[in-house]
Design a protein around this nucleic acid. Structure first.
Lengths: 192, 192
DNA sequence: CCCGAATGAGACATCTCCGTCTCATCGAAT
DNA sequence: ATTCGATGAGACGGAGATGTCTCATTCGGG
């Protein structure tokens, strides 16, 4: 039977369509379904066969994003080593889905009547816990709240993803630019 | 004659409408013209009397944003003192228009056929020059490109504006959170 | 007190986009 | 070569947003 092989191929295509859609929608949120389809290299009809409508597409983007980032978090093994090491691994794992994250962060439709999406809240909690652990270990400043550091991490990942898309930052520097700025800051060490 | 006084009042109303529109559109870019009008506390007809259409509204947002930030840059006196001091003043001056900046950064319609808006490019150049000067003075790390630092500054301002809107960060901490993270980073100094 | 400008609310036609449909074509498995 | 499923292109009606209009009301100046 060719069922399983087919389903897998479809799933990969589906995810790739979603990634292309995220890359476009994160920069032009008013893009037409036709534009989304073109950006993904498929026809509008095929796009509609995969996702019932625009709402369903956004829902699917949310679900894929949350799923991918939960996997990324697991792969980053945030509990091993120091929080700083975990953060480095997290950024590395997040890189392939950075455009997806950029879309999710800017698209506030994750909120359904002032209520945050459950999976998103779970991710927030994990990142916050990571920063809090870093503070308790003495490696992270305590005058910057975990909530802010979490938002800043998301923001910097999205910003850097856009900068790479626009050619302002080299793709190979993605992790370095984010981690070095987030951890070390722009100021040059005085004692140097 | 009541002409001049009237024009001034209108201009203030107009700018306030634009600010409200930016705050809404930066979080819900698909918002209806009616929603924009409600968010600004005016009727849809009045909104249309000020701005011919949605495109005109976005154009006006661009122009206001660029104008406000050029004023902010002037007020920040970027040439006086060290680049770091100039950066501090810049963030302080930018705070009142942070939501506007958040809209402009995420809304990529500043690009008209792969060509960046002229005024925006000018602002970019000023920020980049500021960071470059900081590097030459020895106060800013040279392994982080001015282009990336510029984007990161915009990104952090927008992110922090959203965090304040969502109640994740206290409004009074706005400048501190941005400046401290951007300059010093999250890592706690080792020699402490 | 009166007058004029600006506003808000609503009606209306128009237009764009959406969702669904059909049909011809393509590719892969048999 | 044949068949079956998926795809792309295009047509179609419908829904929602847009842009324009009118009209009653309000507000401020004369």
């Amino acid at each position: 039977m060719s069922h399983s092989g087919y389903a897998c191929l479809m799933a990969m295509d589906r995810d790739q369509v979603l990634r292309d859609a995220a890359a476009l929608l994160s920069r032009k949120s008013t893009a037409t379904m036709d534009e989304v389809a073109r950006a993904a290299g498929i026809g509008r009809a095929t796009l509609h066969r995969h996702f019932a409508g625009r709402d369903a597409l956004v829902r699917a983007l949310e679900e894929l994003g949350i799923r991918e980032f939960e996997v990324a978090f697991d792969n980053a093994r945030l509990d091993e080593g120091t929080a700083v090491d975990g953060l480095r691994r997290l950024v590395a794992e997040a890189e392939p889905n950075a455009e997806l994250l950029a879309f999710l962060v800017t698209e506030n439709q994750l909120f359904e009547g002032d209520q945050v999406h459950e999976g998103w809240a779970r991710l927030d909690a994990r990142v916050s816990a990571l920063f809090r652990r870093g503070q308790e270990e003495g490696h992270i400043r305590i005058d910057l709240s975990p909530a802010w550091l979490t938002e800043a991490l998301y923001g910097l990942i999205g910003t850097c993803a856009w900068a790479v898309m626009d050619g302002r930052v080299a793709a190979k520097d993605f992790q370095y630019m984010i981690i070095e700025l987030l951890l070390g800051g722009a100021r040059r060490s005085v004692e140097k």
